[in-house]
């Protein structure tokens, strides 16, 4: 290892250093996967439904903060390339986050109320197809409303490279990791320590019994969707801050990867989503050191391997079928 570090060419980096750097990149990438994965995992935990539309909620999260910023005059203008928008003050950044979170929470509840609730008692396949339908609707509606070409997202925070000793990350990536960690911990505490959290766990354990025990099941499911959507909205704005162009199809790949992360970690488990996201991000990045060509296949190979060894995912509970 030391030898590897020593053979670095001037200005270049050794393999060991490169690997460390890739792990750091992977953690940043994985944090985003984890934030989105939480939404999949919570909904699946309660309704046993793969909410395919969740990736689109993430996409809309980015747009819900883009438009307010645009109306306030913080975006660049393709008609007038010389126009330099003002620096976005911190309180506006906060406002954009809150705005996007509120809109997405509302949207999540809306989707649940009108698309999924009527199907709660029909087959799971019907619900799944509806989820695919909602996803297609939001995607194509997005293309019609926002147009297909990518929009330049305003610079919320001036990007710079921060040296952390062995590795270097941009400040926006560090913010992503920190915010994701805080949100995930907060969510975990919320689910474990509060009354609505207990209601969520009860619904996920057995919805009928929970209803008999006086839990407001409909309200709890609405809340689950709202919280999942808030996490996706945060992910959307964070990613737009780090990679400042947004387009109506950005949720497709991100949603699929996050879903894979949720299944890896054990769908239904919040710490599992965090673990799955980080594992996926780091593996992709580390494999990327050797071949970025095949790094994309890694997510799916990893998925199949984990499912074969432990079908319920790394931290998932395995349910035995009763006779």
């Amino acid at each position: 290892m030391l030898e590897l570090l020593a053979t670095a060419e001037p200005g270049g980096t050794s393999l060991a250093q490169a690997l460390l750097q890739q792990v750091a990149n992977g953690i940043a990438k994985g944090s985003v996967y984890a934030l989105i994965a939480v939404g999949y995992t919570m909904v699946y935990g309660v309704l046993q439904l793969i909410n395919f539309a969740h990736g689109e909620v993430y996409m809309l999260g980015a747009y819900f903060s883009y438009y307010p910023a645009k109306w306030m005059g913080y975006t660049t203008d393709p008609e007038d390339p010389t126009f330099v928008p003002a620096k976005v003050p911190l309180y506006v950044v906060g406002f954009l986050f809150v705005c996007s979170m509120a809109c997405c929470a509302f949207l999540g509840m809306l989707i649940e109320r009108f698309a999924y609730r009527p199907l709660r008692n029909s087959s799971r396949l019907a619900a799944l197809i509806t989820a695919i339908g909602v996803s297609l609707l939001l995607q194509n509606g997005g293309i019609m409303l926002f147009k297909a070409d990518p929009r330049g997202f305003p610079t919320l925070i001036e990007q710079s490279s921060v040296d952390l000793g062995l590795v270097a990350l941009t400040n926006t990536k560090i913010i992503i990791v920190v915010v994701a960690a805080v949100m995930m911990t907060g969510l975990h505490l919320f689910v474990q320590k509060t009354r609505p959290g207990a209601a969520m766990r009860a619904c996920s354990f057995d919805m009928r019994t929970a209803r008999l025990m006086g839990v407001n099941v409909d309200g709890t499911i609405g809340l689950t969707f709202a919280i999942g959507s808030i996490m996706a909205a945060v992910a959307g704005v964070l990613v737009a801050m780090d990679q400042p162009t947004i387009d109506p199809l950005m949720g497709l790949m991100a949603g699929l990867k996050a879903f894979v992360a949720a299944v890896l970690g054990g769908i239904g488990s919040i710490p599992g989503a965090a673990l799955g996201g980080l594992l996926l991000g780091v593996t992709e990045s580390v494999v990327g050191t050797f071949s970025t060509t095949y790094a994309e296949a890694v997510a799916f190979v990893l998925l199949i391997l984990v499912l074969l060894v432990k079908p319920s995912g790394l931290l998932g509970k395995s349910g035995r079928e009763k006779v």
């Binding site: 799971r124 190979v301 074969l308």
Partner: peptide
């Protein structure tokens, strides 16, 4: 053969993963 143990949504996801792997292989 290997995905036999999987049920329902998990099988769906594993087969989806298989499809994606085929595409990535062909792309390369």
């Amino acid at each position: 053969v290997p995905t036999l143990r999987l049920k329902g949504d998990y099988l769906a996801i594993a087969t989806l993963g298989f499809g994606e792997i085929v595409i990535i292989m062909l792309t390369n």
